[in-house]
Each structure stands twice: as C-alpha cells, then as structure tokens.
Design a protein around this nucleic acid. Structure first.
Lengths: 209, 209
DNA sequence: TAGATTGTTAATCGATTAACAATC
DNA sequence: TAGATTGTTAATCGATTAACAATC
C-alpha cells in the first residue's frame, strides 16, 4: 500500500499511541498537546510530533491534537478496523491461551479456524471454535482463504507448516516459534513473539542491576 | 553487577546468539567464524564481533570462536544457570499457559508459586504447583522471598499488586500487563511482553505490504 | 612462515532531540 | 493581536558497518 518509508522504530511505537489515546478518549479528554502526551507516555514531545508527521499533519498549531480524531487516524493506520481472516495453528497450552485471551477482532483480525496435529483435541471448543485436525488445513484454506496465520507449534515442524500456508495464500504470520519465517519468505509480513528470548533478557537485567 | 555500559540493542541480541550456538553445539560443531555465524544468523560479521567484544575476547585470531565455550560464556552472561525464585501472579488462560509452557529452569528462574484472585481456582495444579489465593501472597513472600514476579493479570489491578511485590522484595518483573512498571519503579528490572501491541504491529505490516 | 580471522578504530548511517519559523 | 503549539529543518547522539592492524 503506502508509507513504506516509515521506519520500524516509529511503527513499533504506534500501538502505544493508540493505547494511550484510547484511554484519554475514554476519560473524556478532547484535546492534547505533544508536551502533555510526552509527560504521560514517556516519549519526548519532539519525537511525538516527528512520529505523527510521518503520516500527516494531524495537529493544529496553537491548539494541539484532537484526541478522538488522532485515535481514529492511528487506528486506521494500524488497520484495527480490518477483519483479516486468521487461522491459529497449534492448540497446546499457548495456542489455546492466545485464542481465548487475545482481542483479535479489536485489532484487525478475525479468527476463523484452529488447528492441531493431535487428533485427541479435535472437536474441543476454544472461543467458540472447534479445534480441527491439521490434516484438514488444505481444504479449509481453499474454502475460506485466510490471509493470516498464528503459529503456536513446536519449532521443528514450523518450516513445513509455513511452506504450506504460504502456498495457500497466507500473507502474514504471528510467529511464536523460533523458525525464521522472514528470512525464508521475504514477501510476507512477520511479527515474532520470542517469549523465551524475552525471559532471558529479563534474566540478564536481573543479574546486572 | 557489571557491564552496565552494554547497550540494550546488544543485550536483546544475546538470546539469539545463545539459541544458535546451542543448536550448533548440539549438531557437534566445534568452531565457528564470525562470517559463518553471520550467514546463519543474519547479523553482519562486524556486528557479531562488536557484540561479543562487549563482554570479552572470546575468539582467537585466525581460528574463530569455540562453539561450546562461547555458548557457555553467553549463558553465563545471561544468567541462565541462576535459579531466581519466581512467582506467577494470575492463573487465567495466559498465566496457566505461561506456567505450563515456559522452560523457566533453563533460563535462570525457578517457579515456586502461582497466585490468582479467583477463589475457585485454588488448589488446582499447574506444572505441579497448586494455584494459591492472592490473599496468601504476603505470607508466602515473607517465607520464601521470591525475587521475580510474572504478571499475567488484568492491567487494572497491576499497580496495586506491583506495589506490594516491590515492597516484599521482588526485583524483577516479566510483565504481560500494560501497567508501566519501569516508569514507576526505576530500580527494578522489567521486561514487557505486550502481545496486543505485537498483534497491531502485524496488522500494520499486513496493510502495508 | 602464510593464511585466516579476530579485536578495535574509523566511517557511515539512522534515529532522536533541539530549535525555530509557520500558523492557528 | 498575542500566546500557544505545531510542522519541519538542523544538530546531536548512538548504533551499525567497514577497514585494517594485531596475532594466532
């Protein structure tokens, strides 16, 4: 689409803006200046103005930013109003928790199918969706054309599953495995969640207080 | 302790080094050069040498790095051999999955207690540990002195729980909530996992392919 | 010794912060 | 109009990459 010139650092800050603006909107705040936002969010005012200006002039000199307008704009930039058809692969502890816990619908996704290789789980309901056996993935994708997959499977068969999903038209991955999708499929959107890396980083910090 | 001069960018790459070196070690590889590591890991050779030299000269000119020695060194830097006593607060979908799924023991932590405010969960076993009612947190901490807490609770009562945990001597948080611990307690180690931010970032990328 | 590869300094690149003119 | 605050350019800072002398 557009704005491929926006740096990753900026993009990764957008959800935080969205979150804080949502809270302010809920609290009934109408306008906010970059310096007031700065105090609340912990970014510098300068950075906030730079960031927002990557996407357009949402503010007004002498006034600041309109909270609900800015909230809506950032929501649009993030695509939270989209409904990308999404399948979850892997219904173990983590997969089931992600399915049950995440507000996919408020963030641009629509979870339509859950798959696992364990036959014994088949039929069990998670968030109102039946767990299906992975064997049915091909037919399901042919019929429903999901564009996003959430990978909550062991890393060892991630390559194989990813290969198939990409072939079936999946364009984005929320990847909880350590398989490096981005390196192997440069064209697709990948967001990695490396929980164990995060935990080790905490360990480092703890030991270097 | 030491090395507080190492930049956050470097620190966040350490778990990846550790992971790749672990795989190479398991595969029986004895030595590796920065350029070969570069090919496998996707960092530049220059960056790899810079990163490793933040912690000491682990390599040898003309030879490269000894895989298992480097693996051990990075493990020591990350503190994976430690056993930081850890409590998990919140045994909902996410909390239970984290408890059951994460290899705390391989990453420097020892999970010793699980707490939830829901009385109905009390006694239920997760990873061999009984879920305890949050009311018993004070006594438990007094007795067992955990130094780390994993927060898998709703953001709204995170402030309160954090306050108590810090008072009881907790020095590190693995924070799955949106409550900004770092801003309020500058002295403690915090590692945030913002799953919904990650999901929205994916949404952005998906809409800007 | 010759070849390889590190450790480290210097150059480049990108991101953050500061400053200020434009303007509501 | 005067005051406030943005949008944007310039300055600074930090991180990455390149280069090469040191050395195994």
């Amino acid at each position: 689409m557009a704005k491929n010139d926006v740096s990753l650092s900026v993009i990764k800050r957008l959800p935080r803006y969205y979150r804080f603006l949502g809270e302010m909107k809920k609290a009934g705040l109408q306008r906010i200046s970059s310096s007031e936002l700065s105090k609340r969010m912990g970014f510098t005012a300068s950075q906030i103005r730079q960031d927002l200006n990557c996407f357009g002039g949402f503010g007004q000199q002498g006034y600041g930013y309109n909270v609900s307008q800015l909230y809506a704009e950032i929501g649009k930039i993030l695509g939270v109003n989209k409904k990308a058809k999404t399948v979850l692969i892997g219904a173990g502890n983590l997969g089931r928790a992600v399915a049950a816990h995440m507000s996919f619908e408020e963030r641009g996704f629509n979870l339509i199918g859950i798959f696992d290789r364990n036959e014994a789980l088949a039929g069990q309901l998670v968030r109102g969706l039946p767990i299906r056996h992975i064997g049915g993935l091909y037919d399901f994708c042919r019929e429903n054309a999901p564009t996003v997959a959430v990978l909550c499977i062991p890393s060892d068969n991630a390559a194989e599953v990813t290969e198939e999903l990409v072939r079936l038209g999946v364009k984005g991955f929320w990847n909880f495995t350590h398989y490096d999708i981005a390196a192997n499929y440069p064209g697709v959107a990948v967001e990695n969640v490396h929980l164990s890396d995060s935990l080790m980083t905490l360990s480092y910090h703890l030991n270097n207080l």
